[in-house]
């Protein structure tokens, strides 16, 4: 795990997802499962970017909107949508759902440095088959208070 964390910005295979018109790259090593038409339940908590709660593997799963986290847009979401279940880093791995519009494919990343800070949620963009795609730093989501470092969350706070 420690070995993987050294290459967390140079992963070879990533899952390409689409949120609205934006494309994002998720490290396949951190992706546990892609669930289509996952049923989301409204969350009683008021957490920025939280799309709802779901059940995965018999356990509750917090599902965040990747788009809301990345760009701060809070679009209407269907009750059932595609959720990418990821595992956060750390001693006690936690699972988190990222609600996306569509999970497209698994691609290999080019050997390029996106040039982003390590505490930033997204970095890039990278040119993937002619598309501009943003690399998502999943580890940022596993740190306490990391949501505050998400650009979309910060932007939402500023708007409020």
């Amino acid at each position: 795990m420690a070995e993987r964390s050294k290459h967390q910005y140079r992963t070879e295979k990533t899952l390409v997802v689409r949120c609205a018109s934006g494309f994002y790259l998720l490290d396949v090593a951190r992706v546990r499962r892609v669930v289509d038409h996952m049923t989301l339940h409204p969350s009683p908590f008021s957490v920025r970017g939280l799309a709802g709660l779901a059940r995965f593997g018999g356990e509750p799963l917090a599902v965040f909107s990747l788009e809301a986290l990345a760009v701060g847009e809070a679009r209407f979401r269907d009750a059932a949508m595609t959720v990418v279940v990821i595992e956060l880093g750390g001693d006690s791995p936690q699972r988190l759902g990222l609600a996306v519009d569509e999970a497209l494919e698994i691609v290999s990343l080019p050997e390029t440095d996106p040039g982003m800070a390590q505490d930033s949620l997204v970095s890039g963009p990278l040119n993937i088959d002619g598309r501009q795609a943003w690399l998502v730093n999943i580890d940022v989501l596993g740190v306490q208070g990391s949501l505050d470092r998400c650009p979309g969350v910060n932007q939402a706070k500023e708007n409020n």
Binding site: K13, V28, V31, D36, E105, I106
Partner: peptide, 26 residues
Amino acid sequence: AQETHILSLNAAIEASTAGEHGERFS
């Protein structure tokens, strides 16, 4: 097709976690 797509994606994900053994599967 969507489910197949998702299944294939999950399979690929699983294959990627399997290292070199999962290359064929991927």
